[in-house]
């Protein structure tokens, strides 16, 4: 159990590190990739939370995330539709 909680803590640290890139990132692409990375880390931490609390319905939430998480990334990328350093 201590292992799982440590893992969750480390993933939380990762999310903070990616968040620095999302906030500082010079171009919009850095922010977009950071958003995608945060979404992946969120799915992992939801699965680990499901193992810790021993509740299998949390896995449904992770599934919804994995299915819908990419849509916002794809749509923002479609919306910008330009090349280069766009802030």
């Amino acid at each position: 159990m201590i292992f799982l909680e440590t893992t969750l803590f480390v993933i939380a640290i990762y999310i903070v590190l990616v968040l620095v890139r999302v906030i500082l990132g010079p171009t919009i692409w850095d922010r977009l990739l950071g958003l995608n990375a945060i979404s992946a880390k969120m799915i992992m931490s939801i699965v680990i939370l499901a193992i810790i609390t021993n509740q299998s319905y949390l896995l449904d939430v992770a599934l919804v995330y994995a299915l819908l998480g990419f849509i916002s990334t794809v749509l923002i990328a479609r919306f910008i539709e330009k090349k280069g350093d766009i802030s």
């Binding site: 999302v22 919009i28 977009l32 958003l35 945060i38 969120m42 939370l49 939430v61 916002s72 923002i76």
Partner: peptide
């Protein structure tokens, strides 16, 4: 544009907090 990205990240984190 940036605000849209930040709000996406905000809603991701907030839904994990709901789970917690």
């Amino acid at each position: 544009r940036r605000a849209v990205v930040y709000l996406g990240a905000f809603s991701l984190v907030s839904s994990f907090v709901y789970l917690l």
